[in-house]
Amino acid sequence: MEKGKWNAITDVEGVSVGHVTLDRPGDGDDYFCTGVTAILPHGGNWFEEKPAAASFVLNGFGKTAGLVQVEELGVLESPIMLTNTFSVGAVLEGTLQYMLDENPAIGDSTSSLNIVVGECNDSYLNSMRKMAVRPDDAVRAIREASGGELAQGAVGAGKGMICYGAKGGIGSSSRIVEAGSRTFTVGTLVLTNFGRGHECRFPGWIPPEEPAPETPVAEEEKRPDGSVIIVVATDAPLDARQLKRIARRAAIGLGRTGTHIHNGSGDIIIAFSNGLLTRHGGDEMTVTREIIKDDHPVMNDLFEAAIASTEEAILQSLLNAETTTGRKGRVVRKAEFR
């Protein structure tokens, strides 16, 4: 399928992405190798104009915030924020403060607010226990978000992540779907931190050197099973139920890369559409909105676009990441291909 101009989630009109990357030594063997990534669903007020949204949990070993309400009401009210496991609270706090500053009515004359935060465990390279990410980092990631060309690899939340034993992190891709006189875009952004080197099925992949499965590894040197957060965006007018169907297809794109989803892996997919917005509040009892018919052939094309963009986004996270040194002098090398 045709790719968007930037081959990134930012090809979906209105979507922007911001990164804050922490890359500095701490005390002793500590090193801060982590960050925050903010995905802004459109250029307006996200609380006042809520994009349709859904999530799909492929394996639930994860510590996300906000997905319960997304599942119940089928909308987003905030940016989607990504960080490391122990920084979910700080990122939620910073994002909440940003939203409260932008919307004085929240929690006062109108309802409360649902912040969505996803995470992966970067403790092999990052001194995660020190919780170096602070609320201000989340605010800065939101404020610095932009459209267009997207920084990928070992940046933002992806700074300390490992994918298939090589350096992973942030990856993105997009596909264009044409249906008669209409054109829609599907864009995916991933935070990759999963898999063992021998599992990867990308053509030309050279597995990194790693201990054989039966080889004892010191407890402190063991790497977490890992996780992946997949965010699928589209401007096609899809409701929450249809977006959950899109999210499930993204899992196929993940599976195509080779992973069999480890026991301790958090594999979570969030899908949203800024082509179907719900205005906050109002006195009207009903709303009339344009939604794609389930039985229209374009649905199959949207499914294919979600699968293809997810698979390539994972590849892009490997291609764009650089060899990274983290805590205790540990090194994770850039992926190699023949």
Score class of each variant (00 low, 15 high):
L150P: 06
K293N: 07
I314D: 00
N59P: 14
T85Q: 07
R245S: 13
L276N: 05
D267N: 15
C163T: 11
P207N: 06
G281E: 01
A313H: 03
E13Y: 14
L319Q: 13
P135L: 11
Q316E: 09
G264Q: 06
E119K: 13
V217Y: 07
V332K: 04
R196W: 03
S181T: 12
L76E: 00
N263W: 01
G147V: 01
I206H: 12
A157H: 02
L92S: 03
P297K: 14
G66C: 03
E290C: 13
V36G: 00
V231P: 02
T110V: 14
D29H: 14
D23W: 09
A138C: 04
G187K: 10
V228D: 00
L302K: 06
A145L: 08
L302R: 10
N45G: 07
F86E: 02
T21I: 08
E119P: 06
I314W: 00
D30R: 08
G89N: 09
E221C: 02
T288E: 10
R175M: 11
Q97P: 10
S78Y: 10
H19F: 01
V68H: 13
T286W: 10
P135V: 09
T188L: 01
L100V: 14
G153C: 05
N114G: 10
W46N: 08
R241N: 06
G118C: 15
V91W: 05
F202Y: 12
L113P: 06
S174C: 14
G326M: 03
D23F: 15
G281H: 05
R245P: 13
P213S: 01
V155T: 04
G180A: 04
I170L: 07
F303E: 03
R140M: 10
M131W: 00
T85D: 09
L315E: 06
K167F: 00
R175H: 01
Y164G: 00
M99V: 11
K244S: 08
T288P: 14
E149F: 06
T183V: 15
D267Q: 15
A335T: 03
C200R: 12
S309I: 07
L96Y: 06
V70Q: 07
R333Q: 10
E178W: 05
N320A: 13
G160P: 01
P51C: 02
I307W: 01
S87D: 08
A38Y: 03
L40R: 11
I39C: 11
W205K: 09
A233N: 08
K159C: 00
G266L: 03
Y98A: 15
R249H: 02
L238N: 02
K130G: 01
G266K: 09
A250T: 05
I261N: 03
E209C: 15
G168V: 01
R129M: 11
I39F: 12
E312M: 13
E149L: 15
T64C: 15
Q97T: 14
K50S: 08
R143C: 05
A247N: 04
S174T: 05
A65V: 05
G156D: 02
R182T: 10
L318E: 00
A151K: 12
I80W: 04
G281P: 10
L100K: 13
G282V: 08
K244H: 08
R248W: 02
T95Q: 07
I261P: 15
M81D: 04
H198L: 13
A90Y: 07
